[in-house]
Design a protein around this nucleic acid. Structure first.
Length: 549
RNA sequence: GCGCCCGUAGCUCAGCUGGAUAGAGCGUUGGACUACGAAUCCAAAGGUCGCAGGUUCGAAUCCUGCCGGGCGCACCA
C-alpha cells in the first residue's frame, strides 16, 4: 500500500529518484490512512510554499488502480490519503492467500550474511546477558531469513587463550581439595559451584592422581571445556537457538590462518616492529592508537586471531558480517573495524550490534553476578523458572542499546503484567472463536472479495490496516537492525483485535459469529488474517502461538 | 581525562530517523460478562521529553556545552 502511494506521488511530481519519500500512518483518524510531508520537504529546494507544492501534487495524481478514496491537503502542507475499502479488502485477501508466507519478502536478494552471536567463553555456564544476546540475535536471523537473506548463525569459541588454562587449573585445584582442603586455588580462578561438579565428573572419568600435574591440568582444561560447550549447546537448544556453525579460535592457529593473516598484512605494509612486539597501524584508520598483534614473548594477542577470524569470514564468501556483542566490548569496535578497513574491506562489511547489560532483580533486590566469584543465576535456571516464551519476548521489548531490568518475579507471573500472554491470548482467542463457530455449525470457507465488502465497521478497517503493516514492520527492522519493534507491533495488533472483539460483549450484532452467514464468514476471515499475522510474528520471535491457554 | 550508551507519566519503557494535540504496560480511581474466552475491554487522573543554547516553517528526535547514571579505555581474552 505504501509503495503504491509512493509511486502515485512520484508520478505526480518530478522528484529526484534518490529523494526519500516518507509515508506515515498519522496518529489521528482525521488525518487519513496515510500521510506524507513531501511537499514541506521539497519547499526549500523548490523555493515554493509547501501548500502550493502540495496542490500541484494533488492535482496531478493519477490513481490508475483506483485505490484512493480521498486526498486532502492539511496543516502546513501535509497530504493525507484515504484508501478505498475495496483496496483494504484486497490486502486482507492477500494475507489469507499467503498464510504462513505473509510478510516474506526478498529484501536480501539471497545475500550471504553471517550473524555471529552469543560466543560465550567456554569457562562457565551461560548467564542472562548471553540469553539476551541469543534472543536478539536469533530473532534477527529469523527475520533476515524471512526477508530474503542467506543467513548463517555462528558461535565463535574462545578456546585459545589462557582462560582455558585457568579453567583447567581451577578444576584441578578443586580435585586436589577433595583430599587436601589446604590445596591452593588459582588467584583468578573460577569459583562457581560448577567447577566442583566438573572436578567430580572428570576425576571419575580419568584417574587424575596418577597423572603428572601439568598433564592433569591440561586434561582438566580440555575436558572441562568440552563439557561446558555441551551444556552451552543444550541450553541454547532448549531456548530455540540453533547455530549452523561453531568456530574454534584454536583452529585458527592450528590451520595456520593467523600466520597467514599476519603475512598478508605485512605484505600490505601495515605492520611494524617496536619494543620486540609486532604492531598494526590501526591508528591511521580511526583507532586511537596502534595495536599489538604479537607480544614481545612471541605469543599472538587475541586481536591477531580476531583479525584472522574476520578475514576468514570474508574468504568463506560472506558479503556481510553482523556481530552481536555485549556493550562492555564497545571499546574494541574501532580497532577491529580499522584492522579490516585498512586492508580494503568495505566500510560497512562488518556491522556490530551492541547489547546493553541486563540487571537481574529478584524479590525487589538486584542480583549481582560475577563468574569469578561464582555468584550467579544461570541461563538454565532462569529458563526453567520463567519459561522460554516469556524470556524471549521480554528480551525483545526493549531496544538493544538500552540497559534492561529483568525482574524474575514479574516475568514469571502468568497474568496481565506479562505482555507475551497478551499477544498469545489474542491468538488463542481467535482459535477459540473458530471452535465456537464450528460448534454452531458454521462452515468457514475462503472468502471472495465480494463477500468481504460487508466488513463495514470502522474497527474492521482499522484491524485490516494494522494487519497489513506487518511486511513494512519487518522491512524497517531489517533496515535498522532493531528486532524489538516486532514485539511492539504484535502487542498493538493484539490490542486492536481485543478491542474489536469486545464490541460484541454487549452487542451480539457486533460479534464475529452472528446470525448472518455471509457476515460471519467475512468476520472469520478477518480474524483468521489477524491470527496468521500474529502467528507469523511470534514464530519470528521464537515464541509459541498456542491455540488454547 | 578520553570514548560509547542511556536520561520521556509514580515505576518499566516505546516513540515509525525532523512533523499535526508526545504513547503503551504496570500502579491509582471508577465502570463493562447468566460469556463468539474478563489472561479482555471502556473511562479518568498523571508530562517544563535531564538543563541551557543553536539549526528552521516545525525539535523528544539533528548540532554544541553542561548535569546525572551505566560501561569501556592492556604486549588480557
Amino acid at each position: 500500500m505504501r509503495e503504491k502511494i509512493e509511486k502515485i506521488i512520484r508520478n505526480a511530481i518530478k522528484i529526484d529518484p534518490s529523494e526519500k519519500i516518507t509515508i506515515e500512518v498519522p496518529g489521528r483518524p482525521e488525518h487519513g490512512h496515510f500521510a506524507t510531508n513531501i511537499a514541506m520537504a521539497l519547499a526549500s529546494k523548490k523555493r515554493m510554499p509547501p501548500r502550493k507544492i502540495a496542490e500541484h501534487i494533488v492535482s496531478n495524481i493519477q490513481d490508475k488502480e483506483g485505490i484512493i478514496e480521498k486526498v486532502e491537503i492539511a496543516g502546513p502542507g501535509f497530504i493525507n490519503f484515504w484508501i478505498k475499502d475495496e483496496a483494504w479488502y484486497k490486502s486482507l485477501k492477500l494475507i489469507l492467500d499467503k498464510r504462513e508466507n505473509y510478510g516474506r519478502q526478498d529484501i536480501g536478494k539471497g545475500k550471504k550474511v553471517m550473524v555471529e552471536f552469543v560466543s560465550a567463553n567456554p569457562t562457565g555456564p551461560l548467564h542472562i546477558g548471553h540469553a539476551r544476546g541469543a534472543a536478539v540475535g536469533d530473532t534477527l536471523c529469523r527475520i533476515m531469513e524471512f526477508t530474503g537473506f542467506d543467513v548463517t548463525r555462528e558461535f565463535y569459541i574462545n578456546d585459545a587463550g589462557n582462560q582455558i588454562r585457568l579453567l583447567g587449573e581451577s578444576i584441578y585445584s578443586r580435585f586436589r581439595q577433595f583430599s587436601d582442603p589446604e590445596y591452593p586455588f588459582p588467584e583468578n580462578g573460577y569459583h562457581g559451584e560448577y567447577v566442583i561438579d566438573l572436578a567430580k565428573r572428570i576425576s571419575q572419568e580419568r584417574d587424575l592422581s596418577s597423572m603428572k600435574e601439568e598433564e592433569a591440568i591440561g586434561f582438566c582444561a580440555e575436558r572441562g571445556k568440552e563439557i561446558l560447550m555441551e551444556k552451552i549447546k543444550e541450553d541454547l537448544d532448549a531456548f530455540g537457538v540453533h547455530f549452523d556453525s561453531w568456530f574454534s579460535e584454536k583452529s585458527l592457529y592450528e590451520s595456520g590462518l593467523v600466520e597467514k593473516a599476519i603475512k598478508s598484512l605485512e605484505e600490505k605494509g601495515l605492520l611494524y616492529e617496536k619494543d620486540g612486539a609486532l604492531w598494526i597501524k590501526t591508528s591511521q584508520f580511526g583507532d586511537d592508537k596502534d595495536r599489538v598483534l604479537r607480544k614481545s614473548d612471541g605469543q599472538f594477542t587475541y586481536f591477531a586471531s580476531d583479525i584472522a577470524y574476520h578475514m576468514n569470514k570474508r574468504e568463506r564468501g560472506f558479503e556481510q558480517a553482523i556481530n552481536i556483542w555485549g556493550a562492555d566490548h564497545h571499546g574494541y569496535i574501532p580497532r577491529l573495524k580499522a584492522a579490516l578497513v585498512c586492508q580494503g574491506f568495505p566500510e560497512n562489511w562488518l556491522r556490530i550490534l551492541l547489547i546493553q547489560l541486563v540487571k537481574l532483580w529478584k524479590g525487589g533486590k538486584e542480583v549481582k553476578m560475577s563468574k569469578r566469584s561464582g555468584e550467579f543465576i544461570t541461563f538454565r535456571e532462569l529458563m526453567d523458572e520463567v519459561g522460554v516464551d516469556a524470556m524471549r519476548f521480554v528480551f525483545l521489548t526493549k531496544s538493544h542499546d538500552s540497559t534492561l531490568d529483568f525482574d524474575i518475579d514479574l516475568v514469571k507471573r502468568k497474568d496481565t503484567e506479562n505482555p507475551v500472554y497478551y499477544v498469545q491470548y489474542a491468538h488463542a482467542r481467535i482459535c477459540s472463536i473458530f471452535r465456537k463457530a464450528e460448534e454452531k455449525g458454521v462452515n468457514y470457507k475462503e472468502p471472495d472479495l465480494e463477500e468481504l465488502s460487508c466488513l463495514k465497521l470502522p474497527e474492521e478497517i482499522e484491524l485490516i490496516r494494522n494487519a497489513v503493516e506487518f511486511p513494512y514492520v519487518l522491512k524497517e527492522i531489517i533496515n535498522n537492525l532493531e528486532p524489538h519493534r516486532l514485539t511492539y507491533y504484535l502487542t498493538s495488533l493484539a490490542s486492536v483485535f481485543h478491542r474489536y472483539f469486545n464490541l460484541g460483549t454487549n452487542r451480539p450484532e457486533n460479534r464475529v459469529v452472528t446470525d448472518d452467514p455471509i457476515l460471519t464468514n467475512a468476520r472469520l476471515s478477518l480474524s483468521e488474517a489477524v491470527r496468521i499475522v500474529i502467528n507469523n510474528g511470534l514464530r519470528l520471535l521464537g515464541v509459541s502461538a498456542p491455540e488454547r491457554m
